[in-house]
Amino acid sequence: MSGYMAGVLAILGINVIFAYGIYLTAAAGQLNLGGAGFQAIGAYAAAILSVELGFGIVSTIVLATLAGALIGFLIAFPILRTRGVYMVLATFAFAEVVVGIILNSDTLGGAMGMIMFDYIETPAVLWTAAGVVAFVFYLMSTPIGLAMRAVHDDEPVADLMGVNNRAIQVAAFASGGALAGLSGALYAFYFGFVEVQYFNAFLSIFVLLYVLIGGTQTAWGPLIGAAFFTLIPEALRIGEDWRFLIFGVLIVLMMIVRPEGIVTRDAIDRIVARLMPGDRRA
């Protein structure tokens, strides 16, 4: 594996984990436009734990993930008071506040960022990503995953079917925060530094786009979405600016031809039917 390929795959792995963090809330019907804030929490938690407090790599990553989960859990209660556009804006504002706090904190290096002492390599990132993919596929296949999708579709009816909507939504934010935090910790260890400028509004926008373009109906969506938008620009081998321009054009076109995302339930059903003509399960 060339160094270049390794780099691309590591970014892909981090993006996939990050995208699943946003997907978990989206699958339960909430749009989180504050992804960068959650990822920044994981990255800076990792930096503090590893550099300042001397924790090992594994325990740092675990604790940074838990930090993301804790913040996700705590912020869920006020955020869930809001709906629709207000929730999009509240999550967005949350991320901006997180970045603002980091920017103004000397302990966190302010605008200078922080240098990591320990590193991880691509395989570690990819194995973690594989674990996350497996976990989300598992989760979405359980009755809890079914309940999440029910909350997404119709909250009042889900409630009458016995689903605890609030618990599902809070859990989605907490586990989403955990995965975004995990992706941030991996980012910090892989690149060897964290700087607050990376965690800007565009990052939040991009990761939400990975999820929505991939499709929120099945667990395949974020995987396909993140892969599509990480690998296609690499494959095109063009300048940075042209990549984003093409990314924008693809998004507009996607919304015209496949507004429910690349992967929909119908598409999966059709593929399954073609591969296994005898199998009629859903």
Binding site: F247, G248, L250
Partner: peptide, 12 residues
């Protein structure tokens, strides 16, 4: 989502 696409298109 589509307007986010246009945001990227015009900016870049």
């Amino acid at each position: 989502v589509s307007s986010l696409g246009f945001l990227l298109i015009f900016e870049y």
